[in-house]
């Protein structure tokens, strides 16, 4: 079982006003004036916060059940369902990962909303989502470098709560990890605290592939990532 942990200052992450504008649903070049100024200012505030954290652990002993659409790791059976099972099938090992932007950005969003400034709160929320995604991207690149050496490839990431993999399976995922891993805890509804966090699996193997269009696997039509892809 191998693993690695990271700490990323916000300035190290690939965050930009246009990208966050896209997350707020603006088309290319549409996010300007007061909106881009507000995003810029939120990014400046975010830079003052503690770094984002990310960790992964690679589990070598992985069993797939095609009939049950489950994956077994360390005697824990994950009911990942059809889509995730088929995408991870063929993996020799699985990297279980966690990333978090930490509590600061959500706190800023909450404070702004409580003060009645919903727009600023909404922008902080989008910045928080981007911090987590950007931290994950750096973790993924590192894992890619590590696995390429042995001629292996990576799948996309798959998270509880998406592609029919129920969010309460997060509780099982956390059982694989040391307590307080990455500073993240689960609440009684199996939601992560800090809120701006992500957990999931990445398949590793010679016979796996990265799927560049995962929106086709998911039936959520209201998703911002799908909207961005559609606009592109």
């Amino acid at each position: 079982m191998k693993g690695k942990n990271f700490s990323f200052n916000i300035s190290e992450l690939d965050l930009s006003v246009p990208r966050i504008g896209q997350m707020l649903n603006f088309g290319e070049g549409e996010c300007e004036g007061v909106f881009s100024e507000m995003i810029f200012s939120a990014l400046e505030e975010a830079e003052k916060l503690p770094p984002a954290r990310a960790e992964y652990t690679i589990f070598e002993a992985v069993k797939f059940s095609d009939a049950e659409k489950t994956i077994e790791i360390n005697d824990i059976i994950f009911e990942v369902n059809r889509i995730v099972s088929s995408q991870l099938r063929g993996s020799d090992s699985i990297a279980v990962f966690l990333c978090t932007a930490g509590p600061g950005i959500s706190e800023k969003s909450r404070q702004a909303m409580e003060a009645g400034d919903l727009l600023t709160g909404y922008i902080y929320d989008a910045v928080g989502n981007e911090i987590v995604d950007a931290a994950f991207n750096l973790l993924y690149k590192d894992l890619q470098k590590h696995t390429e050496v042995s001629g292996k490839k990576l799948t996309n990431r798959y998270n509880p709560g998406y592609c029919d993999w129920k969010v309460d399976e997060q509780e099982k995922l956390f059982r694989l990890m040391p307590d307080n891993y990455c500073g993240i805890r689960l609440n009684s509804s199996a939601l992560m605290d800090p809120e701006k966090s992500v957990s999931g699996f990445i398949g590793i193997g010679r016979n796996v592939r990265f799927n560049s269009f995962t929106c086709g696997l998911c039936d959520r039509t209201d998703c911002i990532y799908r909207n961005i892809k559609d606009k592109e």
Binding site: L24, N25, F26, V34, G116, L118, L119, Y122, I123
Partner: peptide, 14 residues
């Protein structure tokens, strides 16, 4: 329009 413009209208309404 999208959420940011709607929230700007909300600010004006408030």
């Amino acid at each position: 329009i999208y959420v940011p413009q709607m929230l700007m209208s909300a600010k004006a309404m408030n």
